[in-house]
Design a protein around this nucleic acid. Structure first.
Lengths: 193, 193
DNA sequence: GGAATATGAATGAACAATCATTCATTTAAT
DNA sequence: ATTAAATGAATGATTGTTCATTCATATTCC
């Protein structure tokens, strides 16, 4: 073996990509700007990713996987919809405070018509949402006529929208309290009743 | 006066811009591709817009104004929150069937960190949302603790998200029925109770 | 232990293509 | 003839991608 791959560089590339996609959108985040910010040669990115599209897609995939994975594990441990939703929304807010760029990144790309989540991931999400619904109905927590879209809307989309609305300071405020976080969870739970 | 300005060309530029921003995002929609699709010379755009940013911003502004204007007029004629929300959501779905590209365009740009709606427009929206809330509370239709963000979330964001989720076929289906449209309205109204 | 070699990590100049923007020129209406 | 609409070639910068080259280090041999 010769030199070892510098994991720090890959990490810096990922971080720079996330930041620049958030800041300038996919089309506005150029390879050269990413490489410059990461402190890495331009061509170096192509050792790990065959194209810009692949780089961003893979990053989106893994970021989404974090949320989907959390939901999946919650469904294995929690017995009520309230618990699942409170915990998941807690995780989203945690991302919002600890790694704000990452939740912004998901937010930006999930609304980009170029970046559909993969079919597999989508099916996975659909299955998990169905499970949330069936637990909720069994417990009498959810209206029995709730659709997957409605549940998805309140479990995933609404909290992400709330967090990003705050980050943008759309209504003036840019931070949130634990109370407000709980209110988001309560609101989502309530909407599905 | 010499030649008259061909309004059709301006219209074609607007249409092409909307379509290409939806398809490729802001960064991916180039002036040359817009001009080509509009059947217009590249430099021609600069007679009316000083930059690409201005072109897109102005288009976003007028599209948002359509929705905001509708909400405003509804608040002057309707006496209940139910009526306001049902009608507004009706308008959004109408856009979805009649001019799908336009609601996609709003959807894409409202989630782009480069395209904050203007402060003025945002204040205007805030005022209208507050009015929705006060009518709802006065009528006993809304929970008295509903926040502006919650109302905005269910009156504007949720329906737009629903429509675009459908357009993307996220859960398989790509169309919607009048019944489903009413369900979205009912769901939104219910969430604010 | 120390020098030679082999490996592959990392570089960045160079590619054609495309970018947003400009402006001298042409076209068409009064 | 005059005036402004409309053109599209031209500009220099930047795009995503490639690849010959450099350089650091792990391994091998004496």
């Amino acid at each position: 073996m010769a030199r070892l791959i510098d994991e720090g560089k890959i990490q810096r590339i990922k971080l720079a990509t996330i930041q620049l996609v958030v800041q300038n959108g996919y089309g506005g985040a150029s390879i050269s700007s990413i490489a410059k910010r990461a402190g890495v040669a331009e061509g170096y990115l192509y050792r790990f990713y065959s194209s810009k599209q692949e780089l961003v897609t893979e990053l989106l995939y893994s970021q989404v996987a974090r949320i989907v994975g959390k939901l999946e594990s919650l469904l294995n441990t929690c017995t009520s919809t309230r618990e699942v939703m409170t915990q998941l929304i807690g995780e989203l807010f945690r991302m919002g405070t600890e790694t704000p760029e990452e939740i912004r990144f998901i937010y930006v790309l999930m609304h980009d018509y170029n970046f559909q989540v993969s079919d597999l991931q989508r099916q996975h999400i659909k299955g998990l949402i169905d499970k949330v619904i069936s637990i909720g109905i069994a417990n009498g927590e959810l209206n029995s006529r709730i659709s997957a879209e409605e549940a998805y809307g309140m479990v995933i989309i609404y909290p992400i929208e709330f967090i990003n609305l705050r980050m943008k300071g759309f209504f003036g405020i840019k931070e949130w309290t634990t109370e407000e976080q709980n209110r988001v969870a309560e609101f989502s739970i309530n909407a599905l009743k």
